[in-house]
């Protein structure tokens, strides 16, 4: 349907546009919208649309049946598991480190160094990070060998390093710094008067953490943990470099579908998987945003 051939459309358009052409002001944003249209919105549409198109070309949800297959389901569970564990551990250790930073001089060298380093390391991942751990606690790694020389065998029941536990440990390397970066603002919002008020009202250190600092920080802590979950859930490069066996977690399943023959035979499945991942991350990030808003009212 073209606008010119439809008098009703023309009639409706006139009062809206006031009879004028598109204002020139809008030209300023055209390049940006064309660009994100092609490289962000179009791919997103391809994913959504592609996941809804069955092998025979009709619209169906059959692609999502593929996620129900046992090996696929297993990788989904693995992904959730490793993301949860690395998020919870990362959040705990990260919060401790953030606390140590926040209780120091706010303009001091230590704080600035730690924050800068955290900014770098939080983005770290992939082959390089995997190498670093292989060189440390791999079977030829310096720490592994050193412990072995001192009579301690790190892997008495088989090498867990090249499996999910190893991956979880490596994830902590970028999860902890990310936690420091996102949790510090909440800690900075805690005012020294609150501790002093608690003390003068008869409360102990335990009371302060139990009734004041704990409840104040908890929403932010929970929100940051969710962010860490999304971060681990989306991570691909590190797993690809470490895990020799394919398809153990969701991103590796997507990789397998993109690069192998089985993938080209069922193009809808990769898109359905991608959409499922986006959905999980979207839900988690929305909850994160919600909790952050709650916190920002308290800790300014």
């Amino acid at each position: 349907m073209t606008a010119a051939g439809n008098p009703a459309f023309n009639a409706a358009a006139r009062p809206l546009g006031g009879g004028r052409r598109l204002p020139l002001t809008w030209l300023g944003v055209v390049p940006f919208f064309i660009y994100v249209g092609i490289f962000l919105l179009l791919p997103t549409t391809i994913i959504v649309a592609g996941s809804l198109v069955g092998p025979d070309g009709s619209i169906s949800l059959s692609n999502f049946d593929g996620i129900n297959r046992p090996f696929m389901f297993k990788s989904f569970v693995n992904s959730i598991e490793i993301s949860t564990i690395s998020a919870v551990l990362g959040a705990i250790f990260g919060a401790l480190l953030a606390y140590a930073v926040a209780t120091g001089d706010p303009k001091g060298f230590l704080r600035r160094s730690v924050m800068s380093a955290a900014g770098v390391v939080a983005q770290f991942g992939g082959v390089t990070l995997t190498f670093a751990f292989v060189a440390t606690i791999g079977t030829e790694g310096i720490v592994y060998l050193w412990l072995q020389q001192h009579g301690i065998e790190m892997y008495p029941n088989g090498v867990w390093f090249f499996d999910l536990p190893g991956l979880t440990l490596i994830y902590l390397y970028f999860q902890i710094p990310l936690m420091v970066l996102v949790f510090i603002p909440a800690l900075d919002g805690i005012r020294p008067q609150w501790r002093e008020a608690t003390e003068s009202l008869g409360g102990s250190g335990w009371h302060y953490w139990r009734y004041v600092a704990g409840p104040l920080l908890f929403p932010s802590f929970l929100g940051c943990t969710l962010l860490l979950f999304a971060n681990a859930f989306s991570a691909y490069a590190t797993a690809a470099a470490l895990l020799t066996q394919g398809g153990v977690i969701l991103p590796l399943q997507v990789q397998a579908l993109l690069t192998s023959e089985t993938g080209s035979s069922s193009p809808g499945l990769a898109k359905a998987l991608a959409l499922a991942m986006v959905a999980v991350v979207l839900v988690v990030m929305s909850l994160y945003a919600l909790l952050q808003r709650r916190t920002s009212q308290w800790l300014r």
Binding site: R191, Q193, W194, E196, A197, S200, V212, L216, W298, L299
Partner: peptide, 10 residues
Amino acid sequence: MVFQAYSLFP
């Protein structure tokens, strides 16, 4: 004790 400001538990 009454502090300068912002001492109420938010």
